[in-house]
C-alpha cells in the first residue's frame, strides 16, 4: 500500500468528493471512488510518478444481496453491488484496491443493469475482465469498446453471479433443471 495517511490525504485533496471512503487498515487496503470519478482517479493512480499503478490485477464484482428475508435483516448492509479493482505498481511494488459502490439495478428498476464507466482505456487488461463482469455479474460498462458476453453463450439469459439468479429452465431445448 502507498505509505500511510499522507497518500489518502493528498488524494482526497486532489479529488475531493470523488473519493468517498477508505479502509487503509484492512488486509488489502482500499479506497472508495464515486462512479463518475473512476476513470479520472484511475488515470491519476497510473500516471502519478510516486504511485505508478501500471498493472491491473483483477476486476471483480461482489453482490451484497441476501435473498432470504430472515437472514437479510441480520446482514447489516443494504443491498448493493461492489466493484473491486486490484491494482499493482511494478516500479514501486505496492498494491491498492479501488472500490466502487453501485445500486443493484439502475434507478431501482429490476432488470436495468447499473452503469459504471469503463477503465479499459487506462489498462487494456480491463477489456476482458469487464466483459466477464458484465457477463457474470451484470454491470454495464459505459464506453467499453466491445461489451459482449465472454464465458457464457451470447444468447444466455441472466447474470449467474447475482445472488438472486435463477438458472433458466431450458436453453435451446436442453432441460437445465
Amino acid at each position: 500500500m502507498p505509505s500511510g495517511p499522507s497518500f489518502y490525504d493528498s488524494l482526497k485533496k486532489k479529488f475531493g468528493g470523488l473519493i468517498t471512503g477508505e479502509n487503509l487498515t484492512a488486509l488489502d487496503p482500499w479506497i472508495e471512488v464515486a462512479p463518475d470519478g473512476l476513470v479520472e482517479v484511475c488515470q491519476y493512480l497510473r500516471d502519478e510518478p510516486s504511485l505508478r499503478f501500471n498493472f491491473l490485477n483483477c476486476i471483480t464484482c461482489v453482490d451484497y444481496f441476501e435473498p432470504d428475508e430472515k437472514k437479510a435483516a441480520k446482514t447489516g448492509w443494504q443491498p448493493h453491488l461492489e466493484m473491486v479493482y486490484h491494482l499493482y505498481s511494478l516500479p514501486n511494488k505496492i498494491s491498492l484496491v479501488v472500490k466502487v459502490m453501485l445500486p443493484r439495478w439502475k434507478d431501482d428498476v429490476a432488470g436495468e443493469l447499473p452503469e459504471v464507466p469503463t477503465v479499459s482505456g487506462v489498462w487494456s487488461t480491463a477489456d476482458w475482465h469487464e466483459r466477464e463482469t458484465y457477463d457474470l455479474s451484470g454491470i454495464r460498462f459505459v464506453g467499453h469498446p466491445n461489451l459482449r458476453r465472454i464465458l457464457c453463450p451470447e444468447d444466455w439469459v441472466g447474470h449467474p453471479l447475482r445472488k438472486d439468479y435463477e438458472m433458466p429452465l431450458e436453453y435451446h431445448g436442453i432441460r437445465n433443471r
Binding site: 490485477n57 471483480t60 461482489v62 446482514t75 473491486v84 486490484h86 487494456s124 477489456d127 453471479l161
Partner: peptide, 27 residues
C-alpha cells in the same frame, strides 16, 4: 494466479473469485 475471497463470517465464503493468468495472457 490470484484468488479473492469475501466472507460474511460464516464458514462458507460470500464470494469467490479466481483471477486467471492465462485469461490475461490470451487477451
Amino acid at each position: 494466479m490470484g484468488f479473492y475471497i469475501v466472507s460474511d463470517g460464516t464458514s462458507i465464503p460470500w464470494r469467490v473469485r479466481a483471477r486467471s493468468s492465462c485469461f490475461c495472457n490470451l487477451s
